[in-house]
């Protein structure tokens, strides 16, 4: 069996990230020092979360249009991976924040946005567990998924612009703004984002396929039992 091209790309980009992430040049900035390399590992978690949750919503919309269980499988596994990435992003962000900003948790809109995103998708899983019927579970959780994501979007992209943030691109922290422009960082940062996001999609795809197999196996068992 050959791996498809995007899986190979994912592997290549992740190795590139790890190797160049530590050996490549980075700008010398006060406060951050070497920890700026976290940019290659912490920020992609965040991008990956948004992308994968977006794909979850995409499949939820797909389910409402054509109610196939495979769409629901993809939506829920994407939500799982999104929670994993968001959780990793939060934890790594907290560790980084402790060192550079001095606190585990700072009142930063991006941090709060990520935390609320986690809450929403945990609520999504709770909702799924409270529904018995398969079709109903798929439909109602798809509705909640789309609804919640629609309110999450302004939280992630509009609110941070209204407030000062310690994060780059929001003013308030001069040491951070410079690196937006640095081409050395970009050379590793963009591949890193794509690599990690592809890894997330890969894991999602594996889980979705597993779920499908489980369902097929269950159906077969039922057929056997009914004979």
């Amino acid at each position: 069996m050959k791996l498809s091209w995007w899986k190979l790309l994912c592997i290549a980009l992740l190795f590139y990230t790890v190797i160049m992430g530590f050996l490549g040049p980075v700008p010398r900035l006060a406060i951050l020092n070497e920890s700026i390399r976290n940019l290659y590992f912490h920020v992609p978690m965040w991008f990956g979360m948004v992308l994968i949750l977006g794909s979850s919503v995409f499949h939820s919309i797909g389910y409402l249009r054509t109610p196939l269980m495979s769409n629901d499988d993809k939506a829920v596994t994407a939500a799982h991976t999104g929670i994993l990435f968001g959780g990793l992003g939060l934890v790594t962000g907290m560790a980084w924040a402790r060192v550079t900003w001095g606190d585990w948790w700072v009142n930063d809109p991006k941090l709060n946005g990520a935390a609320i995103g986690m809450l929403i998708y945990c609520a999504y899983l709770v909702l799924r567990n409270s529904l018995e019927d398969e079709g109903q579970r798929a439909r109602i959780s798809a509705i909640y998924n789309i609804f919640a994501f629609a309110t999450l979007v302004p939280l992630l992209f509009i609110l941070p612009r209204l407030t000062d943030s310690l994060h780059p691109g929001n003013g308030g922290n001069p040491g951070f703004n410079q690196y937006d422009l640095d081409s050395d960082l970009r050379l590793v940062f963009y591949p890193a984002v794509i690599g990690w996001a592809l890894l997330g999609l890969w894991l999602t795809q594996l889980n979705a396929r597993l779920r499908r197999l489980e369902r097929i196996a269950e159906e077969k068992n039922e057929v056997v039992a009914s004979r």
Binding site: M1, K7, L14, F15, V18, I19, L23, W202
Partner: peptide, 28 residues
């Protein structure tokens, strides 16, 4: 040394993912 260790860890994890991928394909 750091890069080598991290690359090995990454290689291990990716190997595991690829193996899982293959097993699922076989099951399918």
């Amino acid at each position: 040394v750091v890069v080598a260790v991290l690359s090995l860890v990454l290689a291990g994890i990716l190997f595991y993912v690829i193996r899982t991928d293959r097993r699922i394909s076989r099951l399918e």
